[in-house]
C-alpha cells in the first residue's frame, strides 16, 4: 500500500495496512537538509528538496508545503519579520483602524500577490516529484488565525468584546481570502489541506466565543474546501475537549489534537464521523526524550485510537528543528511495530 492510499483510507474511516504516520515536519526538514529557514522562504527548490530528502530518509507518509508562514496575511498587508533560522512572525498587522483599513482590504490573487505564488510553486513541484504515491499536504490558515494575523491577536481577542461587528466583517473577508487561496492550493496539486488555528482553543476563548466568532466562518471555509474535492484536516492546539464535536461539525475529514486531549476520549466522542490525528508531544517527548520514550508514547496513542481504522499517528504540533532524527525514526517504527491492522 502506498502512503497516499494509506492516508486516504484512514481519512475515509477505514483500515489501511497499518496506521499512517505524519510527523508535522517543516523547519525540521530544512535543518536536516542543511539549510537555514530564511533561505527556503525565498527559494522554493531548497524547500522542496528538504521535504523530499527527509521523507526518503525517514519513510513517513506525507510531504508538507511551506506551511504557516502567514503568507495570506502578508499578501493582505501585514508585515512579516523573518529571522535567519526560524519561521517568520507578523511584525506589523495590516488592520489598525477598522473604519480606515477595512475598505482597503483586497482578496489577494494567489498567482500574483506576495509570497503566495512562491508557495504554490513549491506545492506544485512537490506533487510532480512524489506523483501518486505520497500525499501532498497544502496549508491554508484558518480564517480566525488569518484574522488574528491581520489585526494582532490581542486586539482581535479584545474586539470580541469591544468591536464584535467590525471583527466579524474582518472575519468575513479573511474567510473569503482563505477560500480563494485554498482553491489555488488544490489546483497546484495538494491532496489534502491542513487548516490550523492555534488561537481558538479553550486555553484562549470560551466555547461561546468559539461558537459565535470562529465556528460559522471556519465551517464555511472547510465546506468550501470539501466542495473542491479535497481532504481537509483541522488542527487546533490546546484544550479543545469542550469543542471537539463542533470541530467535527465543520465538515473536516480529520481532527488533529495535541496532548491536552485524550485520544481515547476523542475517538469515542467523534471517531465515528471523523478521522482522529494525534498526539505525540513535540516539545517534550520528541525534542527531549529518548527513542524508547518516543516508542512508548506512540504505542499508547496507537492502542487508544487505532481500532477500526480512522486514525493517523501525528505530533501535537509542528516538530522543532532540533528534534533528533532517531526520535522521528522511532515514531515511524512504532506504527510498523504496533499499528498493523490484521
Amino acid at each position: 500500500m502506498t502512503p497516499y492510499e494509506r492516508l486516504m483510507i484512514a481519512f475515509e474511516l477505514k483500515k489501511p495496512d497499518r496506521v499512517p504516520v505524519t510527523p508535522f515536519v517543516r523547519e525540521w526538514c530544512v535543518r536536516q537538509a542543511g539549510y537555514k529557514f530564511s533561505e527556503v522562504m525565498s527559494n522554493t527548490e531548497k524547500y522542496v528538496y528538504s521535504q523530499l530528502y527527509s521523507i526518503r530518509k525517514y519513510g513517513y507518509d506525507m510531504v508538507l508545503d511551506l506551511l504557516a508562514v502567514h503568507a495570506e496575511s502578508e499578501a493582505m498587508g501585514s508585515v512579516l519579520k523573518i529571522p535567519e533560522d526560524a519561521p517568520p512572525s507578523v511584525d506589523i498587522p495590516a488592520v489598525n483602524d477598522y473604519s480606515k483599513d477595512l475598505p482597503k482590504l483586497r482578496i489577494p490573487h494567489p498567482r500574483k500577490d506576495g509570497r503566495l505564488p512562491l508557495i504554490l510553486k513549491g506545492t506544485k513541484r512537490l506533487k510532480e516529484a512524489v506523483g501518486d504515491t505520497i500525499p501532498v499536504m497544502g496549508y491554508v490558515q484558518a480564517c480566525w488565525r488569518h484574522t488574528c494575523m491581520m489585526r494582532g491577536t490581542e486586539r482581535a481577542l479584545l474586539d470580541m468584546k469591544k468591536n464584535p461587528d467590525a471583527l466579524k466583517e474582518l472575519l468575513d473577508i479573511a474567510t473569503e481570502s482563505c477560500i480563494v487561496y485554498g482553491e489555488a492550493v488544490v489546483e497546484a496539486g495538494a491532496d489534502l489541506i491542513w487548516v490550523s488555528d492555534p488561537t481558538s482553543s479553550g486555553d484562549m476563548i470560551s466555547k461561546k466565543a468559539f461558537e459565535e466568532f470562529v465556528y460559522p466562518f471556519l465551517r464555511r471555509q472547510i465546506k468550501a474546501f470539501k466542495r473542491m474535492g479535497t481532504k481537509v484536516f483541522l488542527h487546533i492546539c490546546g484544550n479543545v475537549n469542550d469543542r471537539l464535536e463542533s470541530m467535527a461539525n465543520t465538515g473536516a475529514d480529520a481532527i488533529s489534537v495535541d496532548e491536552k486531549v485524550d485520544l481515547a476520549k476523542a475517538k469515542t466522542l467523534i471517531g465515528n464521523r471523523v478521522c482522529i490525528m494525534g498526539n505525540i508531544s513535540p516539545g517534550v517527548t520528541l525534542l527531549q526524550k529518548t527513542p524508547q520514550d518516543v516508542e512508548q508514547e506512540c504505542k499508547v496513542a496507537i492502542e487508544k485510537a487505532m481500532e477500526g481504522g480512522g486514525f493517523v499517528l501525528a505530533p501535537g504540533c509542528i516538530i522543532p528543528a532540533a528534534t533528533p532524527g532517531e526520535n522521528i525514526a522511532a515514531m515511524v517504527n512504532s506504527v510498523k511495530k504496533y499499528g498493523v491492522y490484521q
Binding site: 470580541m160 469591544k162 466565543a209
Partner: peptide
C-alpha cells in the same frame, strides 16, 4: 476556574 477566558481578562485589564 474556566469561567473567564483571555478576552474577558484583557477587557478587565484594560
Amino acid at each position: 476556574k474556566g469561567e473567564y477566558y483571555v478576552p474577558e481578562v484583557l477587557l478587565s485589564a484594560s
